[in-house]
Design a protein around this nucleic acid. Structure first.
Lengths: 345, 345
DNA sequence: GTGAAAGCGCTAACAT
DNA sequence: ATGTTAGCGCTTTCAC
């Protein structure tokens, strides 16, 4: 026998039929223990392994999970979503799936461009990270593929989602600043249309309210386009240009916080002495900038793992239960707040 | 017609045979322009797309490229290899391939564990990042799959490889320190068995030699197990514990450089005033630590892209040309060397 | 240039 | 519990 063995070879050598061998291999149906054992023996002897394509064609499954990310997140190699992606890769292997990555633009027009793995029927389920066009989501729905959203939710919860506990995170961050005695706490936000970010903003306002701190609109920067390092710098510029004099800043994510730190340093301000800063996400960099950044840790790999578990559940169980998971967060106190300025009112 | 169209539907509607349609779709063989156009018209009308599994079964191709990474690199989410991986994802989509990621342990025993995509014939070519067991490489060879190595090379160049120009990088780094007036330049290395690292070490020694600087063995730490941040810290400890008093340090990679910076700071030494430091790799963090790290930039995404191009070449051309690419490097001068201490001999 | 026919290797009814 | 029989949707000789 020259070429690699097929299920036929196994059946022949075991003196059984194709279907019996198939049942054993897929661990399905009822096969007597003796028969099963003899099949497995031959499988071992021939070191037989089913071919993915053949399986796929016959069973209409691919063994793949599609991971959809927005173009900008991917091209920037965003440390946040990259981590989530790596988390899915990790978990996928445990469930014997592979992850197929693709990116999509802001807009979605099915006549224009559709992720290839959807057209080719090359995925059994989809994980979507971050915000994408809702048209795309309904398109995928129409294909009957299970979808799990990560760090994004739609108005009506028709899909399983893995979300950050943004409300709690925002609350923890602001409470931390309050506990340090701060009262003039600014908010540095970006594109607040993303549900994760708007929730952090809401938590900020709520926490201050609860504490009886007057909300000052000049302390809130909420229309910076990009929630990036550059966006953080420019938001900080605008904040101080407006004459605001906060003693603490809650940045909507670490990237903005880092940009903000950069700007404050350039103004000769000392952190946390003059201004304390809290970020959100706990990206790798946060622990390495000077001063090390106090932030709200998000378990990014964990989110990816859970997303895979959910989508695998939907694929295998064929059920349509919608499960929304809020992954807990953790306040990580570091040097950007630790020796906080004293309250001044 | 309820379900998605097959090549049959296209053939029928176009009044042609399956094979003709297939030829058009695959852009192969000779089909008259009119026929071709009429096929494409029907394809558009039905919005037909071939199914990957069916194609794969018939043509014995998968449309996937396997990416093999060592377990430790992956689990640590090593920023270096992660970037290379993202580079491959990026380029793969351009060539209509998907990347399937897997990890392998240090040892390879085909009777023990073989990457699933190899057993399932689910990849058309392989990219290997970093050092893996040579047994694994020969095993893949025996399957007849093209291999491209990234940041690793074997004694005899039987495989295409995408390599860093480590020699030039090491030379640039040390020359930079020499130009700043340093003479007592230490080397902080890790597991020198990795060809990339040993080459950096060799370049270090050669450059000092060329400059007529005496090589002092107490200035060379070359048996630290891990080339990690922790490894850098411990290597730096040992360096100074031995009584060495360098004015500059060339660390074999940024992770070690960062660990070294950490140790120097804890000793109260000022960088670059007391000791200047150069790293290698230019991982993201390097630009964000304090002081910002002078380093040798490696174009990691670029390496991933080139690797995909090479493996796609081998897959499509079916040729066996071995191409070794040395990706250029770039010295990035930052604060960890910029106001260097003065030469003292 | 185009068509007919044979299979790629497997799964999934349906029988038995 | 195991076997028989059809395909899954495509590519690929080989005729014509």
């Amino acid at each position: 026998m020259k070429h690699r063995p097929t299920i036929r070879d196994v059946a022949r050598k075991a003196g059984l039929s194709l279907s019996t061998v198939s049942l054993v291999i897929n661990n399905r149906g009822y096969v007597s223990p003796e028969t099963r054992e003899s099949v497995l023996k031959v499988v071992r002897e021939l070191s037989y392994h089913p071919t993915r394509s053949a399986r796929g064609l016959a069973s209409k499954t691919s063994g793949n999970i599609g991971f959809i990310l927005s173009e900008e997140h991917f091209s920037q190699a965003e440390p946040f979503y990259t981590r989530i992606f790596l988390g899915t890769e990790f978990e996928a292997r445990i469930h014997n799936f592979y992850i197929l990555l693709t990116t999509v633009g802001d807009q979605f027009d099915p006549d224009q461009y559709v992720p290839r793995f959807l057209l080719e029927r090359n995925v059994d389920g989809i994980i979507i990270a971050g915000k994408v066009s809702e048209k795309l989501i309904s398109y995928i729905d129409s294909l009957g593929l299970p979808i799990v959203l990560v760090d994004y939710e739609m108005k009506r919860a028709l899909h399983s989602a893995v979300l950050i506990d943004n409300w709690r995170g925002g609350t923890l961050a602001v409470e931390h600043l309050l506990a340090l005695g701060h009262r003039r706490i600014a908010f540095l936000g970006g594109d607040i249309r993303h549900p994760s970010l708007s929730e952090r903003y809401a938590a900020y306002k709520n926490t201050l309210n609860q504490a009886g701190v007057h909300l000052d609109e000049t302390f809130e920067i909420t229309e910076e386009k990009a929630t990036s390092v550059a966006g953080g710098t420019s938001a900080a510029e605008r904040l101080f240009a407006s004459g605001a004099n906060p003693t603490a800043i809650f940045a909507v994510n670490d990237a903005m916080a880092i940009g903000c730190v950069r700007h404050l340093k350039s103004r000769g301000m000392r952190i946390p002495h003059d201004v304390a800063i809290v970020g959100f996400d706990d990206i790798d960099m946060s622990a390495h900038i000077e001063p090390r950044l106090t932030t709200v840790r998000v378990f990014k790999e964990e989110m990816g793992k859970i997303a895979v578990q959910r989508v695998v559940d939907s694929i295998t169980a064929k059920t349509n239960i919608v499960v929304t998971t809020h992954v807990p967060v953790e306040l990580i106190v570091r040097e950007s707040t630790v020796s906080a300025a004293h309250a001044d009112d």
